[in-house]
Design a protein around this nucleic acid. Sequence first.
DNA 1: GGGCTATTGTTGCATATACAACAATATATG
DNA 2: CATATATTGTTGTATATGCAACAATAGCCC
Lengths: 154, 154
Amino acid sequence: MQQALQQKVQKAASAIAQECFAMRVRYLNRSLTSIYDEVFRPLSITASQVNMLVAIITQQTLSPSELGGILNIEKSTLSRNLDRMRKAGWVEIDSSQPGRSHTVQASEKGQALLLNILPLWQKAQETTCTLLGSERSKAIREVADHARSEIMKT
Amino acid sequence: MQQALQQKVQKAASAIAQECFAMRVRYLNRSLTSIYDEVFRPLSITASQVNMLVAIITQQTLSPSELGGILNIEKSTLSRNLDRMRKAGWVEIDSSQPGRSHTVQASEKGQALLLNILPLWQKAQETTCTLLGSERSKAIREVADHARSEIMKT
DNA sequence: GGGCTATTGTTGCATATACAACAATATATG
DNA sequence: CATATATTGTTGTATATGCAACAATAGCCC
């Protein structure tokens, strides 16, 4: 490969490495998810599942598609994630009205679990805050909440 | 379930929903990754693979474990991701010294691909900047780069 | 009402991710 | 030098994620 081309390639790689937003949120995702997954492990629940459980309990009852809208999770992903949580006994899914939009809600077991999750979550939250610093932690909230409001518009 | 307990559960869920960092970076990850995946689709490469290719080209040559350190990706994940990229012909993996640390580098095809990726990446980058606003975009960079420097210390 | 379209959910397939266990090698320590 | 320990990489297993295609239903327009 020519010298000139090589330099172009290097410059392109450097530019992307120094600027890319996707690379950065993906890095943060891996790093923070591992913190939360680790503290939740004694309860055999993942960070992803805690997120879903929290959203379901907050909303009391809702359809899978509404939940997908709130969390911006694709319907097929949600379908299988919910199925795992149903098998674990944390949520109940009412598919009685055939074909109609299903309803999802937390079971008693799922609600009780959340109370055990809370102190573990607080620990992970603190670890994260220490890692990022409190100013940057606030920034994460601000950015994500803004993105969510923008995405929900559409 | 008792009324008092129900309230505790609701409060816990609200607190987590309003504060959780993991929920937020996971949301951003899904939202931004889909923007980049979409623009890269014509080249049959994913955002994750672009990240890896960029890191490899920037470093010129390095071992899988070094790459894992840079991107904070678990070694087993990396092993399989690299294998897919090798099969696609974008990287070369030298395992000649048996048992010793392997070396990874981009192939000519991989380097040429990066030049085609660049304009698509710029488009995704702009879309993201419009979605987040330029101040918040800067904040993402600041937070992730700080986290990376903290994590690299250890 | 009848047909067209949009919404909702599932399934097949592929990639991304990580833990645990393993194998092989490298390094340190006595 | 020999053994104990640490590093490196792969493989088995499981969850998380999304696209495409499909099925079923709901809603709309005439």
